[in-house]
Amino acid sequence: MSVEPLPILTYPDERLKTECEPVEQFDPELREFAEHLQYTADQGPSAVGIAAPQVGRMQRLCLVDATRAKRPVDNHGPLVLINPAITNWKGFAVGREGCLSIPDYTGKVIRAETIELTAQDVEGRTVTFKMKGFEARIAQHEIDHLDGILFLDRLVSRHADLRER
């Protein structure tokens, strides 16, 4: 595996606004890419997730790792989510988000408080998760990337104050 982090695309790169293709090949190259993507996220400023299109790979794969939150939150450990789909949403919460692809800016975004999602792991096995709070926020942010949506597209008023999370 290369020791160099993958270059991260930054706004306004058009690829960040592009919907990604499903992953169809579950092979060693995919697993190696997922590891390389994790390594890349580790080099940035305290990232808790990253999505493949942020490094220019236009496929539906993202990483979610709420264990890296500064304050402990409910989590399912470090996750590789491939072809993820949110199947259920419940509640709303305001939270502050930033993005490796949008340096030096954070803003408030409304997300579902709890979600259910289905995805595949690196072996192609179907997995399902019920997430809440911060972990659910990470997953929604990363899955947005796979649809070419940035948190800038979902900004709400600076003074928005539905229960902060």
Binding site: V48, A51, K70, C99, L100, T106, E142, E164
Partner: peptide
């Protein structure tokens, strides 16, 4: 008082 935690990904 509400603690804030910025999510970056």
């Amino acid at each position: 008082v509400t603690p804030l935690q910025t999510m970056r990904g």
